[in-house]
Simulated assay, not measured.
Amino acid sequence: MDSISSKRSRRLNFSLIIEEIKNQVLQRLESVTSDNDFTSGDELGGSKESSIRRRRKAKDALTKSGEAGKAEQKKPTSAGATLVEEEKAETGNVTRAVFLKYIRAVGPVVFLIMTVIYTAYQGSSTYSAIWLSMWTDDSVLTNASRAGTSEYNNKNTMYLTIYALLGLAQGATVLVFALVSASRMVKASGELHTGMLENVMRSPMAFYDTTPMGRVLNRFSRDVDTLDVALPSTIRSFYSCMFRVTGTLITIAYSTPIFLVVVLPLGILYWFIQRFYIPTSRQLRRIESTTRSPIYVHFSETVSGAASIRSYGVQERFVAESRYRTDNNLSFYFASIVANR
């Protein structure tokens, strides 16, 4: 009997301990969820009225939060909230920093040497034309009665020798310029490509979430091709055009000084033409570059989802979309060529 009574007392004590733990847990829960209006006696007692009020408050809070969530969903998403934004084209003049960056990639000293070499080439070319004019206007050589004399032969040999040396100087300078410009511009393109690749590889994951892969391919394909092929050709054309026009003006001004009267009105006319042509051509090139990215984006997405496209039978829609994006890009490309002409 004593053992049975001891067991019952132990069970009773154990149940009392569990009940006390439950009460403590409930008290802590009520103290966290209750408002400041409730008294400590209500919290400890866990009265029915306070629990009903707490339930009502919790229900109202859930209802308000649900309504706020629905209202937030109904709000129109702002432009900055979109995951992938449309590629934007720059406007206005090309900043000086762009030119300086390319010059630094080529090498400032090398760029100066290239300018000096091409100046020497154009100077020898211009002076050869002036020398030829002096040769034909020489009074000794224009006198047919002196033909065959030693003075006639010496002057003729002098003019011929200097003219040949000027021709050799033109060939040597243009060859050195071509070698230096080709090697350094290829190196500059490689440095810019490496820098762009390092920036892309070190970009955070958000960059890959918000930037389509076709846009990255456009930078590494067409833009790098511009650095490799188009930009060196444009720089050589710039050198050639600038120095050739300057040399031509000097040559004509030397032989026909009255021509300088016409130069000023022509310069003003060309300045007005440039005011319209350069901004138009520059912006068309920028738009042509930005409209090329959607072609790569659509093509890469089409290739990756080819199985789904065929399963749903929407091949024609994707072909039409690809043609539309290609035609849109080519329209700006054609417009830039027409503006150039």
Rank of each mutant, 00 (worst) to 15 (best):
R104I: 00
N36S: 15
E43H: 14
I21V: 08
S15A: 13
K59G: 08
V94G: 08
F38K: 05
L26I: 06
E30T: 12
S65D: 11
R10W: 10
S65L: 06
A58F: 12
R53P: 00
D60R: 10
K75W: 10
G41E: 07
V32L: 12
L16E: 15
A105H: 01
V106D: 00
D42F: 06
W131I: 00
L100C: 03
S128K: 02
G69F: 09
V98C: 04
L83Q: 15
T82W: 14
K7F: 13
V140L: 00
Q27D: 06
L26N: 12
S128G: 07
W131R: 05
Y118R: 00
D37V: 09
I18Y: 10
T136P: 00
K75L: 04
A129L: 01
K101P: 02
T91Q: 11
G107S: 00
G92M: 00
D137N: 15
K48R: 04
A79L: 15
R104A: 02
G123A: 03
K48I: 05
T95M: 04
S128D: 03
N23M: 04
S124W: 01
P76Q: 07
K64C: 01
I4G: 13
E19Y: 06
K70P: 02
A68H: 14
T115Y: 09
T91F: 08
S124T: 04
D2E: 08
L29A: 10
L16P: 10
G80Q: 10
Q73V: 03
L16I: 14
S125Q: 12
L16W: 12
T126W: 07
I113Y: 01
K22P: 00
E85D: 13
R53F: 07
R54V: 02
M134G: 05
T91V: 02
W135M: 01
D138E: 00
R56L: 02
V84I: 11
R56D: 04
R53Y: 10
P108E: 09
E67K: 13
S47K: 05
K57D: 04
R11L: 06
G92A: 00
G80S: 06
E43F: 14
S50K: 11
P76N: 04
A120D: 01
K70C: 04
Y102G: 11
Y127M: 06
K74T: 13
G123V: 03
F111W: 07
E19I: 06
V25P: 02
Y127F: 15
K101C: 07
I103A: 13
L29G: 05
L62P: 05
K88E: 11
N23W: 09
G107W: 05
T136K: 08
D138R: 05
I103P: 08
A89T: 10
S6W: 12
T33K: 13
V140P: 01
S6C: 08
V98A: 05
M114V: 13
D2A: 09
S124C: 02
K59R: 14
K22Q: 10
K88W: 09
A71M: 03
S124F: 01
G80T: 15
T82N: 10
V106F: 12
T119V: 04
F99N: 06
P108S: 09
L132E: 05
S78G: 13
S133N: 03
T91S: 04
Y121R: 01
L44F: 14
T82G: 10
Q73N: 14
T136C: 03
Q24I: 06
